[in-house]
Structure formats: structure tokens, C-alpha cells
């Protein structure tokens, strides 16, 4: 039997396709033993998680430190000690730079000098989730802007998109820079973006966010969609502001600055 070149190529091609299809089938028909997934029955539930930070109640440096330390130690947030590689989930900034569009020259001195606690705003219309090319950062139905470190490709589009500077990138391996490791929570790897997760791992196991717990009542956490919730009542009674409201992102973190 003689096979010319054309025929040889034809059969070779067909063989390749055959092998490919067979291989794909092996892949698809892999056994599945599972029965199902379900949320925990002891998790906290809300339609729209939100936070109120009552800055009036933060008096000493210690008050801020406790809150930040609670978050960063639980989530294995590294401390690089330099602003270039810095990673932070919650931190302080002075009033002028926290609210650059709301600053005037004649605010009371105690407000002007008071540090503001900053964290991810978990915006309703989050620009970061809009730009992410892999859905590594995404909105959960309960309003939390989540970040999937397994999927993040490290393009940092979300960092350019976030108007609040809430996102940090792992420029280097974070592990050597974590002072006290919490073995219950993972770290991150170099090359992914991270930020505050509103303590989703705690909420889903029935606990409030670590910062709220550590603040001892200076910060509130609850369901913005429920008119009867604690934070809704608090917002009804106190005048609150949010960062850069003109951008239409609808932040879920509210600040109470002054007044009784």
C-alpha cells in the first residue's frame, strides 16, 4: 500500500483529532461523588452589609491601634515598613486627605486633626469589580466586594480603578513580613491584589468583623437594607458622610464626624 503525502497528512490529522476527542471525554466523564454545598446555618445574614464609623468616639491613638491590629493580625497582613511595598486593609489618614473633596479651611480643629479610619468601602457600584478581567474581584449578593486570590492575575487594573486607594498589591512575598502568623487564615502569594474583605469568613461563621468587635462600640456593622437594623437607626439619628460621594459608587462605609 502506498500512501502519498497528502493522504499521510490527512490521516495524521484525523488521528490527532481522535486522540483529542478521546482525551477530552476522559476529562468530562470524571466521577463526581458530591452531594451538595450549603451556607452555614449560623452565619450572619444581610441584604446589604454596611459599616458606620463613629469618629467622635475615637479619642486616643490606642483606640485606632486596637482596631487596626485586630484586623491585620487576624488576616496575616504583612508589615513591610516602607510605603512602596505597603499592604494595608484598614489604616488611618488625616481628615483633609481622607475627604479631599469635602475639606474646607474652617473645620473645627479637633476634626481637622483627628485621624480617620479608612478601609475598602464595599461600594454598591464598585469600579474595581467592573474592570477586573477575570472576575477575581466580584460583588457578592450581600454587598461585599470579594477578592479571589486564586484567580487574580495581578494586572492591577482594580488598583487603578479604585477611587479610595483601598487596594494593595503583593509586590514581594509577604510571608517573611508577617509578625504573628494566624494559622487559621491563609496568607497571600506574591503577585496578587488584596484588600479588606469585610471579614466575610467571620460573618459566615456568625461573628462580626474583627475591627467592629475590637472597636467596642465605636464602629457598627449591619444590614443597610433593613430599616430596623441597628446601623439604620444610628444613621437616622446622626448625620453621616461618605468618601467621594460624587463618583456614584455608593460606599457602604459611613462616617460620623461631629454633632451630638
Amino acid at each position: 500500500m502506498s500512501v502519498n503525502r497528502r493522504e499521510f497528512l490527512k490521516y495524521a490529522g484525523l488521528t490527532c483529532i481522535g486522540i483529542g476527542v478521546g482525551g477530552a471525554q476522559l476529562f468530562v466523564t470524571r466521577a463526581k461523588a458530591f452531594s451538595g454545598y450549603t451556607p452555614t446555618n449560623y452565619g450572619l445574614k444581610a441584604k446589604r452589609w454596611a459599616m458606620v464609623i463613629d469618629l467622635r468616639k475615637f479619642e486616643h491613638e490606642e483606640d485606632y491601634k486596637k482596631v487596626i491590629e485586630a484586623c491585620h493580625s487576624i488576616h496575616n497582613v504583612p508589615d513591610f515598613g516602607n510605603p512602596k511595598d505597603e499592604i494595608k486593609w484598614i489604616w488611618t489618614e488625616d481628615f483633609e486627605h481622607s475627604f479631599p473633596y469635602q475639606m474646607n479651611h474652617y473645620v473645627p480643629k479637633e476634626v481637622e486633626e483627628k485621624p480617620v479610619l479608612l478601609l475598602c468601602n464595599h461600594c454598591e457600584h464598585a469600579p474595581c469589580t467592573r474592570v477586573c478581567p477575570t472576575k477575581a474581584t466580584f460583588k457578592r449578593p450581600d454587598g461585599i466586594t470579594a477578592q479571589d486570590y486564586h484567580r487574580c492575575i495581578g494586572c492591577r487594573f482594580c488598583m487603578a480603578a479604585c477611587p479610595y486607594g483601598a487596594r494593595s498589591f503583593n509586590w514581594r512575598d509577604p510571608r517573611p513580613y508577617i509578625k504573628h502568623i494566624n494559622p487559621e487564615f491563609p496568607t497571600r502569594m506574591p503577585g496578587v491584589v488584596e484588600k479588606c474583605n469585610f471579614c466575610v469568613e467571620r460573618i459566615e461563621t456568625g461573628k462580626k468583623p474583627a475591627c467592629v468587635e475590637a472597636s467596642e462600640g465605636k464602629m457598627l456593622f449591619g444590614d443597610l437594607a433593613d430599616p430596623e437594623s441597628e446601623i439604620r437607626r444610628y444613621l437616622d439619628e446622626h448625620f453621616s458622610i461618605r468618601r467621594k460621594p460624587h463618583l456614584g459608587t455608593q460606599p457602604a462605609v459611613f462616617y460620623i464626624i461631629g454633632g451630638e
Binding site: 478581567p133 477575570t134 477575581a136 484567580r151 487574580c152 492575575i153 495581578g154 494586572c155 492591577r156 498589591f169 503583593n170 502569594m189 506574591p190 503577585g191 496578587v192 491584589v193
Partner: peptide
């Protein structure tokens, strides 16, 4: 420029 170039096909 990518932090995790091995995951490029996630796109």
C-alpha cells in the same frame, strides 16, 4: 507587567 503570568488564560 502581570503579577501572576501563569494565570494569563484566566482572561
Amino acid at each position: 507587567d502581570m503579577g501572576q503570568p501563569m494565570r494569563i488564560f484566566n482572561v
